[in-house]
Structures are given as C-alpha cells and as structure tokens.
Nucleic acid binder design. Sequence first.
RNA 1: GGCCCCAUCGUCUAGUCAGGUCCAGGACACCAGGUUUUCAUCCUGGUAACGCGGGUUCGAAUCCCGCUGGGGUCACCA
Length: 587
Amino acid sequence: MQGRSDWRLKSWPMSTPNDQTVITRFAPSPTGHLHIGGARTALLCWAYAQHAQNEGGNGRFLLRIEDTDQTRSSESSTQGILKDLAWLGIDWADGPSVEHDGKTIGGDDRAVGPYYQSQRLDLYNEHINKLIESDHAYPAFETPEELEAKRKVAIEAKTGYKYDRAALEIPREERMQRLAAGEPHVVRLKMPDSPITVHDQILGDVTVGPDEFDDFIIRKRDGFPTYHLAVVVDDALMGVTHVLRGQEHLINTPRHIAIQRALGFDSPTYAHMPLIFNPDGSKMSKRDKDKTAKKAVKEAKLESSPIDGLSDADFAKWLKDKTRQLPSDQLIALANHLDVHLPEIDVEDFRRAGYLPEALNNYLALLGWNPKAKNEDGTDVERFDMGYLASHYGFEGMGKGQAKFDRVKLLSFNADTIAELSDDAFATRWREWAASYDPALCEKFSAEDMRLLAPAVKTRCKTLADGRSVIGFAFIDDDAIEFDGKALHKALLKGDAKGLEMLKLYRVFLDSIESFTPEVIEQGVKDFCEQHEVGMGKVAQPIRVAVTGGPVSPPLGQTLAIIGKDAVGARIDRCVAEAEHTLAAKQ
RNA sequence: GGCCCCAUCGUCUAGUCAGGUCCAGGACACCAGGUUUUCAUCCUGGUAACGCGGGUUCGAAUCCCGCUGGGGUCACCA
C-alpha cells in the first residue's frame, strides 16, 4: 500500500514526469445507467488526455468507480456504465477491466488501483487520521437528528445554516478519547478562515470567501468517506493532473482545495463545464422517462397495470408518486403498450433508439465545445470523428453558458452518419442493432436479405430503428393491408381512372417476369410504360399503393422484390377489387 | 433567500481576451424553388439574433456599472 503517491518515481514512465503529463479521470457513481451528460464528461476527459498523448506528451484517461454510497451503489450499474462507455468508444488506460470487441479495456499498469472506492477504505482512513492528528479535522458526535433540528431552526430564522463547530467546544483530549473509545461520530474538516480561489480553465478565477465555508463532513458515521475526501485522496494518489467535470461541482472545489492543502497535495488543474438541459430549459433527468409515461397513462385513463411483472398496487404507487421510477424494462413495456415515445436520457436509451456512437460523440462534443475551424467551403467545422476530437480538443474552445440538448440536430447528425456508411457497413450495423433491440426483424429477414435492403433503407432512415418503418409494408400479411383512401384515389381513380386501368394491365404483365430482382422489375416497369405510352408516374404510383397501401416506399424494384412475386400479385388483386368497389359506390 | 456561474438567430454556436474589416458568419430546424416514377437523399435561395438601461470611446456584440433573465449550490448524495 505504501509508495502509491510516488508511482511516477517507481514505474510509469521512466523518462518523465514533466508538464506534458496529463491524467484525466471519469468517476461515475454506480447508482444507475450512464446518463448522457455523464457520457459527455467522460468523452471530453478522454479527449483531453488523448490530445496530450497526440502532442507527444503522456496522456492517460482513467476510470474510477465512486461507490461510497453503500445504499445506492450496485455492481450491475457499474457493469452497465462500463459497457456503455466501451460502446461509445471511450476507452480507459487505468480502471476496472472489461472485454469489448475482443480487446481488454482498463487495467492497472501504474499500480494505483484498486479503482473501486469501496476497496480503498484503508487509504482514506490513513489520510483522515493524518488530518485529525494535525488538527485539520476533528470528530463530531451530534446525531443526524440533532443536526436536522438545528438546521430547521436556522432555516426558520431565515439565516443560512452552517455547522456551529459545537464539537470544537469539547476539549481536544476528551474528543480524542471518545473517538478512541469508538463512540459513533463523523469527521469534519476545519475550513480555513481566508478565501480560496479556484483557477478554473474555462471560467477563470472564482473566489469564495470564508463566510461561505462550513466544516463539512469527510467521514460518515458508517465509516465511509464522503465524496469530497475520497475524490481528493484518489485524484492525488492516482496522479490525476486535470479535473474536468460539470459546473455543479464548481462550488465544491474550494472544499477540495482545502483538503489538498491540509494534506500537502498539489491541486490539479480544474475545468468546469456548463451543464446540459432539455429544450424547455428543465434539467435532463432520469425521471423524464417516468414523467412521460405517467402522463400517457393518465391520458389513456389506465387504472390497472397493463404489463406482466408489475402489480396493480405497485403500478398505483408509481403513478401517484412523482419521484418514483419504474425499472427500465417495465417502463419500456409500458411505453410500448401505450405507444408513446420515451425521451432518451441514458446512453442505453440512445443506443436502443438506433443512434450510432459516432454521431452521439460528435454531437455531445460539440455541445459546449467548438473547434473554431473552417472547412474548405467556408462553413464551420462541426462534423468530426473521435480522431479529430483527440487531436484538437482543448479548454479554449469550451463555452461558458448552459446548453440545451437538441435532439433534432442530433438526429440530423445521426442521419448523416448513416448516409456516410457503405451499404455493407450499414447492413452489418443494422443487423447488430436489430439482434439486440428488434429480434423480430432478424427473424423475418436473413443477413443477406438485410444486405439487399440496405441501399433502399439507408437513405430513408435517421436511426437504425427507423429501418423497420421504411420496410414496414413487408411485415404485413397480404390480406391485412389497409389502403390509404386518399392515396388510392389519387393514384388509381382520379380523372379517368387511368391508374386503375394501368394497374390491371400490369397485373397481367407481372406474370411474365421471370427473374424477380430489383433491376429486372425496374426495367420491366420502364418497358411497360413505353409499350403503353404513359409516364412512369401513371404506373409506378398505382403499383406502389397496391402493394404497400400508401404512397411512400423505397424504389419500386426494391419494394416489389422484398415482397415477392406471388404476394405482389395477391396485393394488386386486392387493390383492384377495392378500387372497383369504390368506383361502383360512387356511380 | 445567501453565495457562485452564465447571457449572440427557435436551438447549438463563430465573433468578445488584443473595440472599427460585423447593417453579425456557420450548423440544425423552418420557408420557397429545383433534381427524382413516390418518399427520402441531393442542389439553390430565403426568413431569423447581439436581453434591457446607463456609461467609457471618434467608434462597442466586443470594455465598465446596474437591472432583468437562466442555471448551480447550500446532505452523514455524488
């Protein structure tokens, strides 16, 4: 355990240390899925370290699991976060190991682990003891209830609450005795009486005065350190040089600096980035999904649980309590049942919704960071990949203002990213996605089918999930197609009902087609048009409506080939019957 | 409420540090045309912003002050 803080001298890398060393970290607490905001933080931390590496320095990105909250942390959350980061392509040099795409991410090359805070208790206690011995910290014996009462009084008196240092009234010797005797206690840091300035790389200098300081708790009654203590000790022992995190931590930073000073640690360089919000200005919260579902349930006037595994009683409890959340599988089942779209909040949500990691990373990076570079055509650089990010990212390009998460722009990035994929690449990724999130699609179509479908589907979908709607007509039984009345009228019956006539003629022509491939079908329609001296529109649209029910589908050759010759014939027959029926009714 | 941060088109932003080249540039969205057998793609064009009020200055989106607005934070959560 000893010598950890001297890892630079012992192991990695021999030639440094120097100013070129950049070690960043992402330190999620495993209390749920990886939130999109967390993903952005991780991405930018990763990019900053990569940048240093690209510049010839030593850049490392490390991952640490902050599981000091015993009641809320779980190993399954940790695994989910690891998986999501790996999927995004954000890899870490130091941290918990995970297998992804045949490669191992993480490890402990520098021997500064373990990376779970719950496994580092000795280290924290060692430092807490030092602080107590040097009188930088002290035990306090009030119960949570006592403190709560004092806090309540302060709030009612409309004065800000601040710990009154009552424990310091107890003579030092007595305090130490009670501590040694094992009396339940917390440990508080004695905050300095002079202001502390944070030299923030994004916001500039931020000074907080001693009036705002409070002797905050560094070790809880349960013996676990609080976030503040653990984060400072770990960052120091793990050699973290740059701390990039959300602005909600800005106000915590003076506390961290106070601990660093008391412990004799250097302070890392800080950079606090603006938070991201929903378009309506509200906070992007995990509860948004539940909120949307609750609203839909109320609108549908649903009174009992419509899904398996959720009792009516639990359902009612969930519905009544604004803060209550459903497990995500139940939430998804409920949303499917009600046919509502839940807002994507977690990385997993975006993945399920058919977003590509390239697009997500690109959009996330751009939300708050700007490369300030021009393309050859004079437009600003906005579309870039991880490689570009890794070689250009720096704090200078960071904005200071809070940003709203614009799903429409993200969608556009995703559509562009899909369009740039080769047909084969698209087919592969579409199938991979479907294997996880739309197994029925994989059952209906073979990998080869999907490869054939790829060119037609690719330009028509903004997400991988959209693929299904593009070829939705292929999922319907021949006799279950509902013809869109308006489209049917426009394509077949309008004017002298020429469309209907052509459709009937084509039905005969259809039987003569030997090889039912997109190219042959396409050419066949062209020949057919020439033969009858009509424009393509007069023939193609009636057929399209007949086989899909509506006026929209991929190119006709593709569409018919997907459906198959027999089914096309059956569908045309049904459509002709329907059209003639409508025509007769009118006359 | 105290303290802290922030403020350019509907949204993300460039321009602000080194005031004039900005009657403010780009992207997404939107609108209008065009290409296309439909849809989508693609191409062309267009609408649209310096929150308000004071200063400083020959000159301010850019500097200063105030106001307003948004956000963060005030846990034995992280």
